[in-house]
Write a protein that binds this DNA or RNA. Sequence first.
DNA 1: AACAGTTTTTTAAACGGTCATTCAAGTTTC
DNA 2: GAAACTTGAATGACCGTTTAAAAAACTGTT
Lengths: 191, 191
Amino acid sequence: MSRKRIRDIRNEELIEATIVAVHKRGYGVVTMAEIAREAGASAASINYYFGSKEGLMEATMLHLLGKLRRAMSEGYATARTPRERLYAVMDANFADDLFTVPQCSIWMQFWANAPYSPRLSRLHRINRARVRSHFLAELRALLPAGQLETARQALQCYMDGVWLQAAQSDDPLNPDEARAAAHRVVDLVIP
Amino acid sequence: MSRKRIRDIRNEELIEATIVAVHKRGYGVVTMAEIAREAGASAASINYYFGSKEGLMEATMLHLLGKLRRAMSEGYATARTPRERLYAVMDANFADDLFTVPQCSIWMQFWANAPYSPRLSRLHRINRARVRSHFLAELRALLPAGQLETARQALQCYMDGVWLQAAQSDDPLNPDEARAAAHRVVDLVIP
DNA sequence: AACAGTTTTTTAAACGGTCATTCAAGTTTC
DNA sequence: GAAACTTGAATGACCGTTTAAAAAACTGTT
């Protein structure tokens, strides 16, 4: 029990520190010592828990991917129509506790590094496939087969593009507005 | 004349080598020596021409930004209607000599590093503003004012999102297909 | 409660290596 | 002969990871 809990607490603390530190300095530039300082720990203890810098990044993304997956499941639970479920996918991506500048920064760093790390590119592939199949499942009910792929690409690329932009922002983001804009884009694509 | 020409030739060679080398290894990881080897030169000579690694990256992006701007101008020259000009903006982004995996990779690295480098973020801001104003100029002729921003964001984020995906691709891209898909997205947004 | 033994957690210091940049001494071009 | 170009080697850092040893947390026993 408590043996497991301490490890979990430390993991979470270190992951939160990673998000902040990577946002401030960029993944390629940030040092283990900086992340450790952000968490009030030592660089060595990060290696104790995560094995390496790459392992820490993988764990951080796993954490965020889980958050995203959970947010999506919650939205699906109450959505009743295909269109509402499309909204739910969007809302999950722009949820209050996900659509923040530091987290979009991390996502950006993740995308940039995934092609050069098997462990990260694996996560990327899995997540993308999951989002893709959610989109397709709902779009099938709303559009003829010939327009499926165009609509899916338009929506999925839109989501990525918004995060990409958000990562460059100097000011705090507005998740409410982002969700509203996303709904308008859905309505534009599915009249 | 020739004094200037040698410098230009070297610049172009080194920039091409940078695109290839950064694509292969990632900007944060690639070394000056690797880029130099790719160009058949020495690391010292890169510093002679570009001053620093950051200067080299800035010059490389300046090169790509110019290519993009020129491709867009050419498209504008023959387009006759607002919708054709929208197509032209898209076609420029997915032009045969721009929409390749190595160049999308560089773009990705550029996005990821821009927040941490004043010189790169300046380029990013300028380019984004230019594309934005092109989109808005054409959309104004096609949509009521209330829908302008939604449509612009949908299109601009779509473009970014496609590049982001392309940077992760293992196989060569298909610019023809990308342009066709982009046209379909334009038609989806502007019925 | 106290204690001795065991496991988990922590970190300072050492290690082994990397790399951007500079410099001085050449080579080529004009 | 001057200016432009090139580069091997030196410089001066920096950093992820390992290690060894101490501290803390836990265990079961008395």
